[in-house]
Amino acid sequence: MKPDIEKLLERYYEGETTLEEEKLLREFFRSEAVPAHLKDHAAPFQHYTDFRQEHPSPAVGSRFADRVGAESRIRPLVRWGLRVAAGLTLLLLGFFGGMLYSARTSPAGEGQTASAAEDLKTVLRYDRVMQTSASERIQAVYQSMELDRADQEITLLLVNALNSDANVNVRLAACQALLRFRDEPGVREALIQSLKVQTDPNVQISLIEALVVIREKRAAREIQRMARNEQIIKAVRMKAEEGLSRLI
C-alpha cells in the first residue's frame, strides 16, 4: 500500500487527485500505520479533518428563525404593493390589447356557478393576500378552472396572481388556469406580458409551454428574446428555443 500512498501524495501536491483519492490519503494518515518518513505529511490532513468538525452554535440558527418568524407575519407592504402595482399595470396593457382584438360581451355566470365564482374572487382579491395562505390561494385558482367561463374580474385576479403572488406554486396554478381561459379577452396578451416579469424558472417554462400550446405567435418575439438572454438560466433558454421551433 505504501508505494501507492507516495504516488498519491505526489499527485496531491500537484493538485491532480480526485476526491476519492484525497479521502484515501486522509484515512491513511489517520491510521496508526504511518511510516516515519511519511509522518511529516500527516499534519495538514489532520488539521483539515479537525477544522471540518467546527460548527456554529445552535443559537445562530434559532436567532435567525426568531427574526424571520417575526418578519414573515408582517410582510413588507411596500415591496408587495409595488408588485401589485406592476401587475395591475401589465394587466391594463393586456386588457387594452384584448379589447382591441375582440369585442365579446360577457354574461355573468348563473346561479350556483355565480356563488362559487364569488367565493374564489374573495379569496384571490389582492388586498386579502396577507390573510390567506398559499394553499388557500392555490385552491381558489384550481376552483376557478372548474368554471365554464371566467368573467373579467376573475381573469384579472388570475393574471395578478400569476405576476404578483409571492408563492411560486400559486403562480404556476394561475398559469394553468389562464391557459384554460385562453379565449377570454386580455388573457393571451397578459400571458405574453407576463414573460417579461417572471423570474422563477418553473413559471417561465410553464408560460412558454402554455403560449406554444395555444399557438400564440405574437409571443414569438419575447420568447426569442428570452432564448438569447444570458441572464436566464440554461434550462429555460433551452425551453424557449424548443418552444420557438414548435410555434413558428
Binding site: 471540518r52 467546527e54 460548527h55 456554529p56 452554535s57 435567525f64 418578519e71
Partner: peptide, 30 residues
C-alpha cells in the same frame, strides 16, 4: 450553515465574529 460558518472562521479567525458574519449572510439571503 456549517460550511458558511467554517469559511467565515477561516477568514475572521474568531468564533464570535464568524457567527456574526453567518447571521448576516443568512439575513441577506432571506
Amino acid at each position: 450553515q456549517g460550511r458558511l460558518f467554517r469559511l467565515a472562521k477561516l477568514f475572521l479567525r474568531n468564533r464570535e465574529e464568524a457567527e456574526d458574519a453567518l447571521q448576516e449572510v443568512l439575513m441577506k439571503l432571506w
